[in-house]
């Protein structure tokens, strides 16, 4: 893997070293160390630390307002676009601190893709949407375009539905299809890691299932960070989870580990029960 830092900086990625001083064979692909985020002086995330192993689906669970989306946007530096956001701490991606100011954030976002809560497709055709990023970032030859579109749509479980409508406007698709199209657009860039910010919260049961299948299918090949407030979903698709709570207005990690350990933690269980109560109330 080439370093993300600009050529000029001559980035020399340091190796992750285990506490004992021996090189760790199962080095985490992503490690957050005491990451705090403030916006206009107000704390949003407080000293968040977590490790994500390569090829796993890592869930982030917590009530709304706990800074889960901000956490994801910090990892691909999309917070840079928001005025007055300050990030402290270290985020090591394959051993490189991506919060360093010399990191090429555009190159970083090619390697760490993202899918948002609300799908936002561009007002062009379905095929053009899939190619939107990849043809500018990696340069796709005209002869290869059809192949790239097919591969991405197949991976997003959309090929069967859309293969005859590739030239139609993407704005005519259903929300569920739009969300999977956004996923295909991100997958076309072949990212090593995918950040998913409550990707199914705006979708019906059928589209939700399709996206969950897709996440399970990506396991091993890509690392996935999935933010969700749906406990059942977390149980179904994630390998490990972190439970985020709100303390003094800022998000903090309450517990992280495998699903059973987190669901077994009494403090987490109380938090989840409260979240479920709130959701039940919202449904009524």
């Amino acid at each position: 893997m080439e370093p993300i830092e600009n050529q000029k900086s001559g980035g020399n990625p340091q190796k992750t070293v285990a506490p004992g001083g021996i090189e760790n064979p199962q080095a985490p692909v992503l490690a957050l160390e005491e990451v705090s985020v403030t916006a206009q002086g107000k704390s949003i995330l407080n000293r968040v630390s977590l490790d994500v192993q390569p090829g796993e689906v890592f869930g982030i669970l917590g009530p709304s307002g706990a800074g889960k989306s901000t956490l994801l946007r910090t990892i691909n530096r999309l917070v840079d676009l928001q005025p007055d956001f300050r990030v402290r701490g270290r985020i090591l991606y394959r051993g490189e601190d991506i919060l360093h100011r010399r990191v090429d954030t555009d190159a970083l976002r090619v390697r760490i893709g993202m899918v948002f809560q609300q799908p936002s497709v561009f007002p062009v055709s379905i095929a053009e949407n899939v190619l939107f990023g990849v043809r500018r970032v990696k340069g796709v030859r005209r002869s290869e375009r059809a192949e790239v579109v097919e591969r991405a749509l197949r991976e997003a479980h959309l090929w069967g539905e859309l293969k005859d409508r590739l030239k139609d406007s993407a704005w005519n698709l259903s929300t569920g299809q739009q969300q999977r199209l956004c996923l295909a657009r991100a997958l076309a860039l072949d990212p090593e890691m995918l950040l998913m910010d409550e990707p199914t919260s705006a979708l019906d049961a059928r589209s939700t299932e399709a996206i969950e299948d897709l996440i399970l299918g990506m396991r091993e090949r890509r690392t996935v960070l999935l933010v969700t407030h749906n406990l059942e979903q977390a149980r179904r698709v994630t390998d490990r989870i972190a439970c985020v709570c709100v303390r003094d207005g800022a998000g903090e990690i309450l517990e992280q580990g495998c699903c059973d350990a987190v669901f077994g933690n009494p403090a987490c269980r109380r938090l989840f029960e409260r979240m479920e109560d709130l959701e039940t109330w919202a449904d009524l």
Partner: peptide, 21 residues
């Protein structure tokens, strides 16, 4: 919509490309 800009930047395109495309 601001979401459109964020979506483009999320794909790794530059600010100039976001404006033009």
């Amino acid at each position: 919509a601001q979401e459109q800009r964020v979506a483009v930047r999320g794909l790794g395109l530059t600010r100039g490309e976001t404006v033009l495309l």
